[in-house]
Design a protein around this nucleic acid. Structure first.
Lengths: 349, 349
DNA sequence: AGCATCACTGTAACCGGTCACAGGCCTCGT
DNA sequence: ACGAGGCCTGTGACCGGTTACAGTGATGCT
């Protein structure tokens, strides 16, 4: 016969429970619970003695017991479906992640990071997320047709996406930067500064950011009666290298260009050495404006003018919307304004 | 008056419990639990009918109830104490994170990402981690004297660190690349290729990586009877820009150098344009070797020879060690071998 | 036949919280 | 003096699992 040892010797002392605190404080465990949750109708001295007992015993609530009783987990998942793109190539992504972590931490919520790249991981992610482990899900730039998306929607998990998700406006919330307005303001600045031959290095056209920034460029030109020249639009992949490549093309196709609006800072950064090698002074001969205001923008030579992508606001809003969704509000899509940051590569006129 | 909604907001009908499955299958709920956990001594037909009942009801176990009963949370924390460094500047970090996520996912463990940069966040992190929310903690390059570390150790949370943590060998496990051997092999390769004036761009000397790579450099020279010249060692911050800066210094101080070993790929990348502007051909006049084999190494011109930092192995080992720690084994520090990858910036002799 | 063993199953007692409900005590109104 | 009602507190019933322990019937052994 193996008797159960009351005080287990090897594994150290066990953590105090709410009952231990109640005994210490000389009240019932229900009262301790009330103090912990800030419920009304508890006498000041009870509050005081419970508080003291808590610090004396070093008590912390068992999160699993609490979750079991309340039905809330206190944690939300940050789901990545395209890590190779987001995590490794996009410096903005780190800013977004940082912002989300901060916003969640402030709300005492836990961030569960899930990477669902392989089919196997995606399957596990769906079961996990539908299984009640988390209170909600934050998604980065999901693909509209992704089956994962519809499975989560079917499981009634609250979801907030970063970037618009076509076809799911009524089932999931989303937060997006006003890409179009940002792009437009950048191009209008170039026009106001006297540029007449403005080229654009566009992002991938299967992303909403790439499309909207291109539309903003085109609309700004149209609004000022400047004809859109197909030759003045090159396409890149967001990366530094693709920006350099695109710039070489543009110099060949539009030798008289006097302004470049690149859809990302990295691509804008790629244009600078190419322009220098071609003997064009920035901003003297050619003005350059990027997009994102990533960390690298200010450190370039010359420092890069750019459209500030308000990722801190976006992450904050994502968490806020998710909170509302969890509380039972209906899905909502919002847009966050961008702003123009002028630096050496295209100073104010 | 605002009545409390009885049914949880997100979900309409409530999820089936183990009792529902038992009723469906015509057995007791203990039997269902036994089937779920693969316990012995359950009749084949009971297993079958339970399995059927599970698929019929769409049952998934409530993770919080399970955690409460077993005392295991099934999740581990990945703690970042220096996000500005790791998350934003270090491309390797993303690789490590990816690897850890994969290893945990394969073990059905959840990754909780915690960023503890501000004092407030650090405090919350300690309470959270000591509070039994997670089964263990993975730490990236913690600073040995960090009070956070000793608090976690005191709370008896299983910890595995990436990189050596001096003074905690008996309390926490750690996994590190063999930085010293890697650095040494890089420098020996340069010597074998005929270089005689080999400079080093060192990393920060308050990190174990920075120190060990410098030691490896010094020891390789000593082993081949080459005197260490203080002027041939410059210091950088891991970053591209600091590498360029260091290279300019070195060209001034050691004009006859014919080899450079940089402690990071980013710093090595920074040397290339500086060398080109100075009229030195790589690898003709000067051979360059980096460290890490980060994504960028192969895309440079010329492609960078470098020491492969086995981050995939490291992440895998970290998770394995943490598992052993959780199972009750004693802490263990292990080293993972590196390998030399030769490319255009210093091809094989 | 009687008893031990084996293979399996069910009951009940946890795990550590939350919360509905039933009081108790004190003050106030009548 | 006594009931009403406000404030505060304690009891007990959950939440949904795991698991110790106590059966139960069938079989094997003496």
């Amino acid at each position: 016969m193996i008797p159960t040892v009351p005080t287990s010797p090897g594994t150290g002392r066990k953590r105090p429970t709410i009952r231990d605190v109640a005994r210490e404080a000389g009240v019932s465990y229900a009262t301790v619970s009330r103090v912990l949750n800030g419920r009304e109708w508890v006498s000041p001295e009870a509050v005081r003695s419970v508080r003291e007992a808590i610090t004396r015993t070093g008590y912390t609530a068992n999160p699993h017991a609490r979750s079991l009783a309340t039905g809330r987990s206190g944690s939300i998942a940050f789901l990545l479906t395209e890590p190779q793109h987001l995590l490794f190539e996009d410096p903005n992504f780190a800013v977004l992640l940082r912002g989300v972590a901060q916003a969640l931490s402030a709300r005492e919520l836990t961030l569960i990071l899930m990477i669902a790249a392989t089919p196997e991981e995606r399957g596990r992610a769906v079961t996990y997320l539908s299984g009640g482990h988390v209170d909600g899900v934050l998604l980065v730039s999901p693909h509209s047709g992704d089956p994962l998306l519809s499975q989560l929607v079917k499981a009634e998990v609250p979801i907030v996406a970063c970037g618009k998700v076509l076809g799911h406006e009524t089932t999931i919330s989303s937060v997006a930067a006003d890409e179009w307005a940002g792009a437009r303001s950048a191009v209008e600045h170039l026009i106001a500064a006297g540029c007449r031959r403005i080229a654009h290095i566009a992002g991938p056209q299967d992303t909403s950011g790439g499309v909207d920034r291109l539309r903003g460029y085109a609309d700004a030109l149209a609004a000022h009666g400047i004809a859109l020249d197909e030759a003045a639009v090159a396409h890149g992949t967001w990366s530094h290298e693709s920006g350099a490549e695109a710039m070489r093309d543009l110099l060949r196709r539009v030798p008289d260009l006097d302004g470049v609006f690149a859809a990302s800072d990295a691509m804008a950064a790629g244009t600078l050495p190419v322009l220098r090698e071609a003997g064009r002074d920035v901003p003297g001969d050619v003005r350059v404006v990027g997009f994102d205001d990533s960390g690298l923008a200010a450190t370039l030579h010359p420092p890069l003018s750019t459209v500030r992508n308000p990722l801190d606001r976006i992450s904050e809003e994502m968490v806020r919307l998710l909170g509302e969704l969890i509380a039972g509000r209906t899905p909502l899509s919002i847009t966050v304004p961008t702003s123009l940051v002028l630096r050496g590569s295209s100073p104010p006129p």
